[in-house]
């Protein structure tokens, strides 16, 4: 197995946690999210030529349009955190998928918690 090439999307996944999770209808970052984002910040500072898109998501327990807004708010919370850590605005795009792209299938607390997320994706 080859180790991922440094600075690539695969390398980011292998060396930083790519996602943070949120409580129901919330977009604030808890302690664990902050730790994850500090790890992302370190990676982004090591590879300053990379760009990312933060994808904001919601669980299925909300209405479609509100969840689009909520996903954007979550993605933006991550963007603002990265910005505060010194990552340039222009390197971080946001997109919301609302409840349209769950990571985990299932109508249960575990699936909902996994789906209330913001995922940082390094551009290829």
């Amino acid at each position: 197995m080859n180790a991922p090439v440094p600075g690539t999307p695969e390398h980011f996944i292998a060396n930083a946690k790519d996602r943070v999770f949120f409580a129901f209808d919330r977009s604030d970052l808890d302690e664990s999210a902050v730790k994850t984002l500090m790890g992302q910040t370190a990676w982004l500072k090591t590879y300053p030529n990379t760009k990312v898109t933060v994808e904001g998501h919601a669980d299925e327990r909300g209405t479609r349009e509100y969840n689009l807004a909520l996903g954007e708010r979550r993605a933006n919370a991550v963007k603002q955190f990265l910005k505060a850590q010194g990552i340039a605005d222009a390197r971080v795009k946001v997109i919301s998928y609302g409840k349209e792209r769950p990571a985990v299938i299932g109508s249960n607390e575990y699936a909902w918690a996994q789906n209330r997320r913001a995922v940082t994706v390094v551009a290829k």
Partner: peptide, 9 residues
Amino acid sequence: MSMARGGSS
């Protein structure tokens, strides 16, 4: 319609 930007819609 709505526009979302900067965490606000």
